[in-house]
Design a protein around this nucleic acid. Structure first.
Lengths: 328, 328
DNA sequence: AGCCTGTGCACCGTGAAAGCG
DNA sequence: CCGCTTTCACGGTGCACAGGC
């Protein structure tokens, strides 16, 4: 099929290109009769506007780019899907990319950026945000700039819930398994973990009990196998649900029962956390509300170019059977 | 920061726009000295080419669009990530979208399309592929067109392995839980399931034992709970791993042990299938090889516009402990 | 003549200001 | 003022060509 342009439609309709442009963009510069005629022809010829040309002319698009570290894992997939839905309803098209920041986003083909779990040099990121002239929303970061906003989870509160829960268990030999060290969420969770561990357990040896799990379930599996066998730890605070599953696996291999012999908690409320047995105690954030807030802030930034804001979402504790709570 | 164009660089370098264009595109129409000077200035000014303008002129880009039904679930995330990596290494930028087919892909901003699990009207899809003038690769479909190719899993073989495995178990009351009815993979698996069930179990009542699970673990959980309680079935062939987890959950609620009291098999070899206890017997496809083949076919199509081909990938059986094999 | 280096210009499709009967 | 046309600019590409050796 040949490409149809405004020019071709103009020829077919016997009018000028400008008239066609006006007609299709619902400008009142054209009579109703002509508009109807032009629209009919456009539909018949399956006219699709050339976005490159339009963008070149107007320097704007309805394309928003979501940059993430990976498509894999429950968390990213769930959040991306939610953001996509909400932007879609607002008339925007979300394009997801993973890995490097594409040079694409520096061109005016892209109207704005959503950053989800991007791992990269902070100063580079700061430079990008400062030099780029469009809204950037961070979901797991707090880069400060006039055209940026952050909507983040209250990691402190989430970790508080988890440490409190473990503190009420019969398993007081507690171990922390973190995400990768350049993850914003993992860093925040680590700070909170230290704070609440020190406060509740009244000990100053936090660092001795922290292990890097890199958000990777096979790593946590190895750690769990070692620690459970040695009886070094009997409770595991994992910074995401996937790693908690690794601990489940280790326990099962060693014939230990989660929720009885050991306690485990996770973070994210992935669908597996509710489906596995015993159910995993974890932290939930309302992803719908999160996505909605991202889009709200996006439009605010786009219209007013307001000052940098950080919005915090309150998470919820999802109490299931993976923790053996003290009865007294 | 102000936008830098070729024109600005040309002024700064004291040469013409054409020379700048040649220099930056490594054409040999320009001397090494001039090229170096121009490149230096471009770097200093943080020049970023305007992709819209370039695309408008050349009608080509390095952008490939991956269309999927959702970012959620293990399967899509894993495959998208793999494709992204391989296209990235080949100098292409992958843009992922989920949901509707964006009008974007009909413009020449997009160089080609990868279709992963797109659910939509087949004739509409056929029209799109026929009318669009760029490579389309299907990973879960077999649309025939000169500019399309399919690289699909051998679902027949995968299901054969699973039915054979269950046939060797002590659990002969077998039930099939399918994906959603407009999924290509689910349809193929259904056909294969009928064939091998009829052949091995020597029965003609296949349809009575098929239930729609919609690839949704909560649905399979409900089905499993009902059937296990009634002792209607004792083995479950699920068309993906997520639904198999739903059966695990149901079994655990009813104090039945998977791999002993009931048998369960899945499809996809998700990471949870290996981490859960007992390990889930499932079907694996080499996603790296799949992604590589997709990119190979993409380039073939792009260069030669060859005839439609269907490539089939052989899956592997991953035998774990979720099936209680007969010992004799 | 031929080679090297650089320039002028038409063009892609769209949107909108200015002009005109 | 209405309804339409003419014209131009957006940024980049690459052909045709020019001038020097």
């Amino acid at each position: 099929m040949r490409k149809i342009s405004l020019k071709k439609i103009a020829e077919l309709a016997g009018v000028s290109v400008a008239t066609v442009s006006y007609a299709l963009n619902d400008s009142n510069q054209v009579s109703e009769v002509t508009r109807a005629k032009i629209k009919k022809i456009a539909a018949e010829e399956h006219y699709v506007p050339n976005l490159s040309a339009r963008n070149l002319r107007t320097s704007s698009s309805n394309l928003v780019c979501a940059i993430t570290n990976t498509y894999q894992g429950n968390f990213n997939g769930d959040v991306l899907q939610e953001i996509q839905n909400i932007f879609g309803r607002a008339g925007y098209q979300l394009l997801a990319v993973s890995g490097q920041i594409p040079s694409l986003v520096r061109t005016n083909m892209i109207d704005g950026i959503i950053m989800l779990n991007y791992r990269g040099n902070q100063t580079e990121l700061q430079n990008l945000v400062d030099s780029i002239n469009k809204p950037v929303i961070f979901m797991t970061n707090e880069i400060k700039s006039d055209n940026a906003a952050s909507i983040v989870i209250d990691n402190d509160l989430g970790i508080k819930y988890l440490v409190e829960t473990i503190h009420q268990s019969i398993h007081q030999k507690v171990c922390f398994i973190t995400g990768d060290s350049n993850s914003y969420n993992s860093q925040r969770r680590l700070n909170a973990a230290k704070k609440y561990y020190t406060k509740l357990f009244k000990k100053n040896d936090f660092e001795k009990h922290v292990y890097s799990g890199n958000y990777d379930p096979t790593l946590s599996f190895e750690l769990g196998k070692k620690f459970i066998r040695l009886n070094r730890y009997n409770s595991f605070i994992c910074f995401n649900d996937d790693m908690a599953l690794g601990i489940y696996h280790a326990a099962s291999q060693l014939n230990k029962i989660v929720g009885k012999d050991i306690s485990v908690v996770g973070f994210d409320n992935s669908f597996e956390s509710g489906v596995i047995s015993p159910g995993l105690t974890t932290i939930d954030v309302d992803k719908k509300a999160w996505g909605q807030e991202v889009v709200n802030q996006y439009f605010k930034l786009k219209e007013s170019g307001s000052k940098h804001t950080v919005t915090t979402l309150k998470p919820k504790l999802i109490l299931r059977e993976s923790v053996n709570i003290k009865t007294d």
